[in-house]
Nucleic acid binder design. Structure first.
Lengths: 139, 139
DNA sequence: CAGAATCCTTGGAGATACTG
DNA sequence: CAGTATCTCCAAGGATTCTG
């Protein structure tokens, strides 16, 4: 993974790169995709996505209540990330007391749809997973 | 979230529970599902799933090489979790040097399929997310 | 080779207090 | 109300070493 300073020769190095890098650019894209997955396949992100899918629009405290178990800090943080990634819009109403509404963008909705399969899978296979666990633990 | 010791009366408490707990059992299931999602929507789990989907069967070091950036510790750990959850079988060949093969179970395969939508989403929307980020940062 | 064990660091995350 | 700022702490995870 780290550069090998003892590479035999430039030729050898080119050879090695040719082996490990099918089109060199694909690798870069693949890495970006992987990184994006890492960002997006996060527990809180998934749940917030889910909640915002159900209730079109929610304000901060409503989210805090609906999300169950999230700390205020993590909520803010996750929402910021989601906003930055274009998943969520954040509209501030200049009133007192302040009011901020969160709502999914089309991009966020599409991700929610993509995750839908995982939720369904989890519901459908919950008992099977639990069975596997107890079987594994009893050993 | 924590029990409120100042609940006015048993009646009031029952009322509150009726509000927050549509069928009480659903909540339990929902929590289990959420917890399962938290377990399964993990970066390394997703990637290992992906890799094992592509190459039917891999041994430990092969996985370590294919997974790119994972430490040996995390690989072992994640594989154990996946095995415990019934995603993966671990077959030990009693030879010297030792050889251990990992392969997805039907359950693992089904989860991989469920995640497939997310991978596709990530590939398709990578540029849009990056655009959103730069737009957000330039502010 | 396939791990287990150990040590060590960092940043993830909670709790609390403060502010526009 | 909707956050930001600060302090703190624990555990996730990396690096390294050891072993059947």
């Amino acid at each position: 993974m780290t550069d090998n300073p003892y590479e035999a020769s430039p030729e050898r190095r080119a050879e090695r790169l040719a082996e490990t890098a099918p089109t060199e650019c694909d690798v870069r894209v693949e890495r970006l995709v992987t990184e994006l997955i890492g960002r997006v396949a996060d527990k809180w992100t998934m749940i917030i996505l889910e909640v915002l899918e159900e209730h079109k629009e929610l304000r901060f405290t409503e989210l805090a209540r609906k999300v169950e178990g999230i700390s205020q800090k993590m909520l803010t943080q996750t929402l910021r990330h989601m906003e930055r990634d274009g998943m969520v819009t954040r509209t501030i109403h200049p009133v007192i007391p302040p009011r901020v509404d969160y709502r999914l963008t089309p991009l966020g909705l599409s991700l929610g749809a993509a995750f839908c399969g995982v939720w369904i899978w989890a519901e459908k296979n919950l008992t099977e997973v639990e069975a596997a666990r107890t079987a594994f633990d009893a050993r």
